[in-house]
Design a protein around this nucleic acid. Sequence first.
DNA 1: TCGATCATGTAATTGGTTACATGATTGC
DNA 2: GCAATCATGTAACCAATTACATGATCGA
Lengths: 188, 188
Amino acid sequence: MDVRSIILGFLMGQSMTGYELRKFFSLSFSFFSGLSYGSIYPALRKLEAEGLISMALQVRDASPNRKVYTITERGREAFLSSIREPVPFEHQRYNFLMHLFFFAHLNPGERVGLARNHLKSVEKVRESLEEVAPEVEKGADRFQLLTFRFGLRFFSDLCANVEDALRALEEDAAATKGKEAAKARSRT
Amino acid sequence: MDVRSIILGFLMGQSMTGYELRKFFSLSFSFFSGLSYGSIYPALRKLEAEGLISMALQVRDASPNRKVYTITERGREAFLSSIREPVPFEHQRYNFLMHLFFFAHLNPGERVGLARNHLKSVEKVRESLEEVAPEVEKGADRFQLLTFRFGLRFFSDLCANVEDALRALEEDAAATKGKEAAKARSRT
DNA sequence: TCGATCATGTAATTGGTTACATGATTGC
DNA sequence: GCAATCATGTAACCAATTACATGATCGA
């Protein structure tokens, strides 16, 4: 699902400006990446040129002008046909796994450090997700709730997975240390 | 971690051709996307130009010539410093969740259909992962094993998550049907 | 007065993918 | 004889991000 369909999806519910779209998106989809203006504004222009959305300029003398976009009938059709498309799983790179794959080239301390660090960053995402939960759930329908809970569980699972990997690396490091200590003792 | 570091990582273990790199990658990282020649070959040229790898042309009269790449000392240093970089979690879009978010616009049957379909495609990935397990684990070191098991668990968790979402959608659909049946009865 | 928020946009860059182009060898 | 595998590469395209550019208003 690309920016275009996401924009159409939000406009199915209500008319909005590009600025508002971005806010909505960052909140609702805070467990994936946000959308930047650099992709939203060009997409809005294109969608308008294609007649899938229409624009109404709101001139205001106090605040900056706004361009309020509304989905058209053709836009609704386009959105519905895009959301009905099958959703194959698209695997994407997970950076930490790439690193882990090559961990043989690091020493035990470095491995544990990187894994711990990564765990923290995953936990941070989960926590921030839990933080915004009340606000997200306020305006959410049944399926948006389902989506959000899916996201929460996804991150809980991921944390547990990283934790276990970290534990394995820690045991490894402890064993190495133990061996070194034994070696040191045998030298005396 | 981009193509460059991945290539360097593989060449840390042994010298290889671009063709072999791709095979190695698709096998080892079959749970993320593969790498295409369109990204490997240009990367190899660039790495060579930068002196991080060196090339030896293997002329063979029977089979096509091969360009065997070997990592240089500078390449080893570059790889080590790249793998030591902290690995923040980068959230990426998960298409099915985007769809689920907008499921209110579909009817119950369509929702269940899409979810079921998606579950199948995730299960297929998990199964194919389990299939290649013996081959992957054969040549794998401790950390590559850890990586692989991480991947397996990631997909098991994901399947369970999708299954639960599907179950919720199915109950929903059943309830809707029930209501409609009741309505139909009340009309007679 | 200073930072946050509102509001819109462009240009350069990134990091790839897909399709195209070529051609020999090996096994069934 | 035909498909799969070995082997290398380019060109066009894609979908986004980052950084830049601008400027007003509002609250502490």
